[in-house]
Amino acid sequence: AQVAKGGSAGSVGLVAQTVLLPLALAPGTSEVTLRGGTHVPWSPVYDYLKRVYLPTLKWMGVEAKVQIVKWGWYPVGGGEVKATIQGLPSEARLEGLALLQRGELLRVRGLSASSNLPKHVRERQEGTALGVLRSNGVNPRLDLLDGPSKGTGSVVFLWAEFENVLAGFTALGERGKPAERVAEEASRALLAYLQGDGALDRHLADQVILPLALAAGPSSFTTESATQHLLTNAWVVNQFFPGRVRVEGVEGTPVTLCTVAGGGL
Rank of each mutant, 00 (worst) to 15 (best):
R109C: 07
K82G: 00
S149Q: 00
R109F: 09
K58I: 06
E95C: 07
G72S: 11
L49A: 00
L99H: 03
R109Y: 04
G110M: 11
K82A: 06
P140A: 14
S90G: 14
E80K: 12
A98F: 13
E95L: 15
L100Q: 13
R122T: 06
L49P: 02
S112D: 02
L111I: 10
R51A: 09
N116I: 05
S149M: 00
G61C: 12
L49M: 09
Y48D: 13
N139E: 15
K65V: 02
L117N: 06
L94Q: 08
Y48F: 12
V52A: 07
Q67D: 03
K82Q: 09
L142A: 08
R107E: 15
I68P: 06
V76I: 13
G96M: 12
G61S: 04
R134F: 06
R134I: 01
T56F: 05
I85N: 03
P148C: 02
S114L: 06
L111M: 14
T128Q: 10
R93I: 01
S90M: 13
E126K: 14
R122F: 12
V108S: 10
Q101F: 14
A129T: 13
L106P: 08
A98V: 11
V66P: 06
A129D: 10
V62W: 02
L88C: 06
E63D: 10
G127T: 00
P118S: 06
K58P: 00
L133F: 15
L49T: 01
V69K: 07
L94H: 05
S149R: 04
W71C: 13
D143G: 09
